[in-house]
């Protein structure tokens, strides 16, 4: 069950896909307004965990408990968004569908609806391209529109799957700042997955670090440590702090560790 301040509690959850165990005993809870990074290498199970929170995938054991409202109070920005360049749809149309995409009937012009959409576009700084076809927008612009689509229902929990992949450094900083600001303003809890924790260090209240199907969770300083990550990976790993940065290094000769680290781009982390 949830304590008063908690929005989401994942308790000892294990998940299998097609009979293969993907996640084991994942355990964490998020408080209202918290910003949590879900960090892990490709294939570590970030998308699977987010889909479990959404209820698209059922845990084989353990539980996922959401604050009252269930899925209706979750906003989601998926990792893969395949766009048809000919899709006859403007950015504002997609945002509006976030508000009432599940209603029957054609959208009749309504002032209230238009105002809400305009406000949301303004909040994510998407007003300049609000009337362009979504297929013609850049990756960063699309990302903003998708965030507006997810936020327009004022969800209590916002899930974002790798929203920073394929963005240049400036756009990454822009989106991160935007999310931090929006989450404060709307009191929205954010759970954001990324393979690189660097851009998130200054904004994360909490981290869920995935490796080998298990997770280490807590504050950054409590998780990004030699003992904790070594236990998670199952072999010795050094977390070295140099010049204000954190290097996560595997011991020489640890073949498995080497490959794991190479696959895992999260080997350099800046101490906030």
């Amino acid at each position: 069950m949830l304590t008063r301040s908690e929005v989401l509690a994942v308790r000892q959850a294990s998940v299998s896909l097609s009979g293969h165990p993907i996640l084991k005993d994942i355990d964490f809870a998020l408080n209202a307004g918290e910003f949590c990074g879900l960090i892990g290498a490709n294939g570590s199970g970030k998308t699977t965990l987010l889909r479990t929170v959404l209820g698209f995938v059922m845990p084989t054991s353990g539980s996922v408990t959401m604050e009252a409202g269930g899925r209706a109070s979750i906003g989601y920005v998926p990792q893969k968004f395949i766009l048809d360049p000919y899709m006859p749809m403007r950015a504002r149309d997609l945002v509006a569908l976030g508000l009432d995409g599940n209603r029957l009937g054609v959208p009749l012009p309504s002032r209230g609806r238009r105002r809400k959409v305009d406000e949301m576009l303004e909040a994510v700084e998407a007003t300049p391209f609000a009337d362009q076809r979504i297929g013609s927008l850049s990756g960063g612009q699309q990302q903003r529109v998708l965030i507006a689509h997810a936020l327009i229902r004022r969800p209590r929990l916002l899930l974002l799957d790798e929203p920073l992949a394929n963005l240049d450094i400036r756009s990454v900083a822009g989106i991160v700042a935007l999310l931090r600001r929006v989450s404060r303003e709307l009191q929205t809890t954010v759970l954001l997955s990324a393979h690189d924790m660097n851009p998130l260090l200054s904004v994360m209240d909490r981290i869920v670090y995935l490796a080998h199907g298990r997770a280490a969770t807590g504050a950054i300083d409590a998780v990004v440590r030699t003992e904790v990550l070594s236990r998670l990976y199952g072999y010795h790993i050094d977390v070295v702090r140099v010049h204000g940065r954190v290097l996560v290094v595997a011991a020489e000769g640890e073949g498995d560790a080497q490959t794991a680290i190479q696959r895992d781009p999260v080997h350099v982390a800046q101490v906030p």
Binding site: M87, M89, L97, G98, G101, N102, R103, L104, V106
Partner: peptide, 15 residues
């Protein structure tokens, strides 16, 4: 509206 959204992205629709 539901048809449109599920055409753009089944995942967004499911959400």
């Amino acid at each position: 509206r539901p048809l449109l959204l599920s055409s753009v992205s089944p995942e967004l629709a499911e959400t």
